[in-house]
Design a binder for these strands. Sequence first.
DNA 1: ATAAAACGATTTTTT
DNA 2: ATCGTTTTAT
Length: 723
Amino acid sequence: MDVSPILDPLNEAQREAVASEMLPALVIAGAGSGKTRVLVHRIAWLCEVESVSPYSILAVTFTNKAAAEMRSRVESLLESSLGGMWIGTFHGISHRLLRTHWQEAKLKQSFQILDSDDQLRLVKRVILGLGLDDTKWPAKHARWYINGRKEEGQRPQHIQDHGDVTDRQLIRIYTAYQAACEQTGLVDFAELLLRSLELLQQNPEISTHYKAKFRHILVDEFQDTNSIQYQWLKVFAGEENPIFAVGDDDQSIYGWRGARIENIHSFESDYKQAQIFKLEQNYRSTNTILSAANSLIGNNQSRMGKKLWTEGGDGEPIYLYTAFNEQDEARFVADKIKHWVETCNGRRDEAAILYRSNAQSRVFEEVFITQSIPYRVYGGFRFFERAEIKDALAYLRLSKNSADDPSFERIVNVPTRGIGQRTVAMLRDFSKQHQLTLWEAAEKILQASLLAARASNALQEFMRLMHKLRHDIDGLELDEQVDHIIQVSGLVKHHGRDGSEKSKSRVENLEELVVAARGFHMDDELYEGMQPLDAFLTHASLEAGEGQGAQWDDCVQLMTLHASKGLEFPLVFIVGLEDGLFPSSMSMEEPGRLEEERRLCYVGITRARQQLVLTYAESRRQYGSDNYNPPSRFISEVPAELIAEVRPRAAVTKPTVRASFQANSFAAETGVKIGARVTHVKFGEGVVLDCEGKGSSARVQVHFENVGSKWLVLAYANLDMLA
DNA sequence: ATAAAACGATTTTTT
DNA sequence: ATCGTTTTAT
């Protein structure tokens, strides 16, 4: 057996992980250390050397993109196609299980997936249906609650309200929402995971089958798994099958969405024989950039511990620019990019601008437009999430499943056909009273002539239209079905009415949907046994599509720090480095959340290959008024010797460069270090967040578990250090 | 049924 | 400031 193609391209640490025994393994893979490569080569190793059949491998990722990349890289390494191997997202694989075992999972065979927008609408309707005031019970909050409970594996009947009124109402909403989903055959994202976990837990014959099938389980981005996902993995693993988990605790930035970094620690105790590997050699960035990243992340307390290094050189220093305001900041970045393109022979798409919040992109866009610099903003609405597309899909869904109430509500008056609020309210009441779907309620109401003539006619017209559509599209090809529906429903005409740019693009999108349907192939095993339309609808829900169509132009890349995870660029700007913005004011007071912000900064820094530029503005217009935020504490956590200030400003008090000295000298003088745990006689235990001043006026900001954050004068506070 | 006016929120978002 | 949502007026 020639193992050289598999092992030769790897470094020592990677090789050890790839060729490790068939035992549980945890690979802590630093940024740019070849994480995907290890995963891909491990699969190849299993197939080629350990003679594991691809049918026995389950590889799980978070995004469709990562799944597709992994599959194609394994295929090109093995030079064969991996038909039988299950590579997919947690949601995709859960979905596949539920489709196969829909009966055991107590689902309708034709269940459809509710995306988060659909979910919000449904939650809102449920709240109103319970007679609650939706301003007192915001749908967003209820959705957050429901998803949170599902991610903890909790069903309404398991939850105690502890006599709390708020909890009791939320549980009521959850219960009613779930009932609505069951009745209409809809499944939300969290439900896909929980339902498939329950399926496995409650049906031993099914879990036994899959445990016998999947002898090897591989997971990407393990630090991002939530508690249900980890449980789900453990079911597949059972006692027998080793999990090969790859992740980076320092890149865990989705804690606010339920990701549990603790799963990494649990893994060690859950699998005692687990081998731990660390990948610390970085192939992406210069030494300077890595030193900055190492130093910054060193301020976090709860880490596995890891230090990136490279064989490469130091490269350029990190530039720091202090802008007067956000306009100045954007102009500076634009100039720097021009310089990169014109004198350094770089390309625009090698430059990325990373910011904490989406709102920050605007100023950059304005400046780029006036200077004619092509750019591309990541994020925003994706294809299948656009309103007009969702309208068209709702027609398709309703024509397929008349019980789909959310789709019914969405399109009953789109385009407007004289079915107003009152009529819809009547339908809702009637359906609720008689336990009917909206469609059935409409039929009954028409039969009984309960509506005024005008509303009755309009509703009748709608029902006739749906009947006609259902009849017309029977037997047509998928793309013909889509085309027929968008034409006959009047959606195209509706959007094409006024000739504005926006309406033009909506019509184009609808036409694009026909093209997407034409290009949609059922060849994926995922869609085995499904009707083409069901499969297409599933595809639309599970894969929302790219933010923008392929943009091959040479564009500057603008995105949030979150969106940058997994990407790399020769030239990276991290902008808006101000306390209150980044770290966000909403996370600054809580040590755990501040650490996540710091990891986000670490992610940003480690995106850069050659050149990293940091900027902050002394004054920034936020929410309509001018704010003067102090420079981000993260700037001072980068060693000053790595930083070159672009505009050194002698006269003005600017502690930026001195700040890291300041934190260090503060520690030397007072013995109090940022991040240290302390106790206070009155306030109890806490963590040091920040420090300032010296001598008798030295003060520290401490976050106490019970009373929140406080600034304390060291001389009076009588803090005790904890080990 | 549409348009204007008032209101309110405003970190990040893999599926 | 600005964007999306909801209320109110035409």
